[in-house]
């Protein structure tokens, strides 16, 4: 099988996850930090579920339940100008941003 990419934003492959698991990272938070998985533009929307499933398979047996990583804002990448406008009390101007 060729290279299987799990996290497209950060180029994390299935093999990277397998190696991280072998190095002792057996929860999604550690895998994320060790490989960079889920830290790119999509913030895990595309890869976290796949990685979680793969991790559950690697764990196997009775240990198949793995918690997702803690969800962090922002829901969607948003221009800084939109938020700066809130601080200054001005209405956010979508077009400018």
């Amino acid at each position: 099988m060729g290279k299987v990419i799990v996290c497209r934003c950060e180029d994390v492959t299935l093999e990277d996850l397998r190696q991280a698991f072998a190095a002792g990272h057996r929860d999604l938070e550690s895998l994320k930090r060790f490989t960079g998985l889920s830290t790119g533009f999509c913030q895990g929307k595309c890869c976290a579920a796949h990685a979680g499933r793969f991790l559950a398979e690697l764990r196997g047996g009775d240990d198949m339940v793995c918690d997702p990583t803690r969800t962090r804002p922002l829901l969607h990448p948003t221009p800084a100008a939109c938020f700066a406008a809130i601080a200054s009390g001005e209405a956010p101007d979508q077009e400018d941003a």
Binding site: R72, P73, L74, P77, P79, A80, A81, A84, S88
Partner: peptide, 20 residues
């Protein structure tokens, strides 16, 4: 933080914040 960043570097207004 966005306001303070843009005060110092106004040209970053269109840059998207990813995560906090």
């Amino acid at each position: 933080m966005s306001a303070s960043l843009l005060r110092l570097l106004p040209r970053l207004g269109g840059v998207k914040i990813l995560r906090q």
